[in-house]
Design a binder for these strands. Structure first.
Lengths: 337, 337
DNA sequence: ATTGCGATTGCACACACGTGCAAGCGGATG
DNA sequence: CATCCGCTTGCACGTGTGTGCAATCGCAAT
């Protein structure tokens, strides 16, 4: 029946009695169109339900307006919060977010970037995994901007946004000691993600400076279940820790739950706990977790600002790197000094 | 310097010593190309880093491969889980997800759909809000498929996926009564979302059949904080409820936390609680929440399958509606009968 | 009346791709 | 050898848009 396709600028032009160029100019800010023609075009467009075809526009302008978000573990609280902020700010900047999930194999980050190239994305923001150097080069050579968030990589070209993980580890160590803790432990995943390893090393180093050893335990992913397992391992040791810094809030939640419900320990009286990310659950009264807040809003702002910044090749050779500090959110999982 | 744009099929053709058509056919499944030309084309493409321009391809085929996901409150556990499943399945079906966040005003759902039209999305999946009928018609007229998930709407054309919310309310009411509860309550948000209202009405109706009244309290959004407020209101009543069905797991978590930590109540001994969604936190031992699981995987499967199904106009007039049942996940927040 | 000038408009081309059509080519059959 | 047939391949056109260039138009000044 009405297998009519999308309405094109040509049809609008005919209905308005003007040339197709006039239609195009009407929808191009800053183009030269008289008020009268503009009015007639807009009227016809409204009547016909015309919308500029961004595929064709992107083809012409060599600028699709698409920004790819490459993510795994979207269902994780921290990831989804960051995703939320990024999409909102991208939209405010007139871009549109294309979402690529890399929950499968690890090489899929490369395939994701290829997808980004196929759709001529103006930029790609990588939240998970690390692309192969050859793919990165391919993207840059094609004029595609790249942003790496909390990914460690020394390739020049992409914008790299990182936190002061190492220093955070140090700050929490002194907080533990000030609270009277003597047996410190660090709970990590066994993924070996660089940012998590920096937290670990910062914590261990600071503790050493304070004359304390740290028992490090690593297991599984960065989720709740892994936290429970880590609690099993740590809290059955001969010398039971009285303070645990967890690489992630989810780990901390699992560890706290196990400590309380399986080992009958009281937090923070018998066990102090700290996490990282400041996910929403950290503020729930069941956890009331002292943790470091990822500056999600700032991360998104910086990334989007940089995407909008000039395309001048002059700066394309310098090292783009941003270091943000994670704010310590003081709650009740560490007893007062 | 190397302000070279993306490499086009033309350049590949020249390097391979064939016509541009040959290149195009090489990347079009089912086209007629000899093995030899195909090899040379692929070789040249690899060397130059060529990738088919999906914008141009979409322009030709009238099929962009883009599917729009229109969502608000992405950072919510249930939403992000559904989002995860949808993106994975869309990718497996050869589509790519475009993400539109509608966290702002309510009319923004319409603007989101306009964005979908501009990018000539093959389909849009709406997880939040409800578009205006005129926009819906515009989408359908342009051949764009529409999927509404847990949105109530009687417009023909879109695929509507819903749950048996009303019956779920009934099932949990009998479970409460069987557990010996006598004073029932329902905790809802004041948003008035149809699916939430169905849960409420189903619960109230079933309770009435069992000869029991239900005090209904509504407040704020569907989040944790609202649950705490609702607990304040309910647990200070003269006749304190001994069973609360919450429209949402997040509400239930907030309510449980307040009941325990502010009112010193024991769950489930003094207060039985049930939720809806089966978010990950519901299984955490701090909550151990009995709840209904949204069949996230099935929802995504059905949606993506329908998108891939034939474009025949024969079925375009029939009512597309899917009703799924939410499975009751029995945990420890309701005492055993 | 002629000239000059700025604003507007239409033509035509470019963007990167898919595909129908006809030409070419090789081989097999009569 | 002529004919036919199937497989390839190049040409040319179409998809919807932005934009440089030249033409046109209106208006004021000479």
């Amino acid at each position: 029946m009405s297998s009519k396709l999308f309405v094109s600028a040509q049809e609008v032009a005919e209905k308005a009695g003007v040339s197709r160029s006039a239609v195009s100019r009407t929808f191009t800010p800053g183009a030269s169109v008289s008020a009268e023609t503009r009015r007639r075009v807009l009227e016809a467009a409204e009547a016909l339900g015309y919308h500029v075809n961004h595929l064709a526009r992107g083809l012409m302008r060599n600028e699709s307006g698409i920004v790819c978000l490459i993510v795994s573990d979207v269902a994780t609280p921290y990831r989804s919060a960051l995703l939320r902020e990024l999409t909102i700010q991208l939209q405010n900047a007139g871009k549109v977010a294309m979402f690529i999930n890399t929950d499968r194999s690890d090489g899929s980050v490369d395939r994701a970037l290829q997808q980004a190239i196929r759709y001529r994305a103006d930029a790609s923001i990588i939240l998970s995994g690390l692309p192969d150097k050859s793919i990165t080069q391919l993207c840059l050579r094609n004029g595609q901007r790249l942003v790496l968030i909390n990914r460690d990589d020394d390739q020049p070209g992409p914008l790299k946004i990182n936190l002061d993980d190492f220093e955070s580890g140090g700050r929490i160590a002194t907080a533990f000691v000030r609270a009277g803790c003597r047996v410190l432990a660090f709970a990590n995943s066994e993924a070996g993600t660089p940012s998590l390893m920096r937290r670990e090393r910062g914590f261990v180093a600071a503790a050493a400076k304070l004359g304390l050893d740290v028992t490090v335990e690593r297991h599984g992913s960065t989720g709740y279940e892994a936290g429970k397992v880590l609690a099993q391992r740590m809290l059955t040791r001969a010398e039971r820790p009285d303070a645990v810094f967890c690489a992630t809030d989810l780990l901390a939640c699992g560890l706290m739950d196990a400590a309380r419900h399986q080992f009958g320990l009281s937090v923070p009286r018998q066990l102090c706990v700290a996490g990282f990310d400041d996910i929403e659950q950290a503020s729930w009264s069941s956890f009331d977790l002292t943790t470091f807040a990822q500056p999600v809003m700032t991360i998104a702002t910086r990334a989007v600002e940089w995407l909008g910044s000039g395309r001048d090749d002059a700066t394309s050779e310098v090292e783009h790197s941003v270091r943000l500090t994670a704010e310590l959110i003081w709650r009740g999982s560490i007893r007062a000094g």
